[in-house]
Amino acid sequence: MRALRPGLLAAMALLGLVTMTACVGGTSASVYAITTGGNADAGRQLIAQLRCGACHVIPGVRNANGMVGPPLMWFSRRTMIAGEIPNTPQNLERWVMAPKSVEPGTAMPALVATRQQARDIAAYLYTLR
């Protein structure tokens, strides 16, 4: 194998750096894992699988461009959930598991089966700053 040219080496190093910056989200995810007890990565996958994006715009989730409910960008900065209760990890967990218990007239379906799933979803939503 020939010696790599400096230009090529630099390009590869740059590519490596760019790849690593893509992981920076992991830092914030770990911070919120403490507050919600959830895993943001698992939450993102669950959000995609449950198709939350059919109704909501959710940054970082593929095909999440729904126009039925509110967009969820900057979710961690919002003060209210459903216009009813303060945006805390415990309240968010309750809202995604049983929306009717917070707002009886909501159209949002109860799609989250377990408490852990609710925490994972909350962990991801709190990475949206």
Binding site: G53, A54, M67, V68, A107, P109
Partner: peptide, 19 residues
Amino acid sequence: TYRNDTADLEAWVTHAQSM
């Protein structure tokens, strides 16, 4: 075009034109 699940059905009923 969309999976037949609760979320997509709700969205389809109210906002088919964006889907």
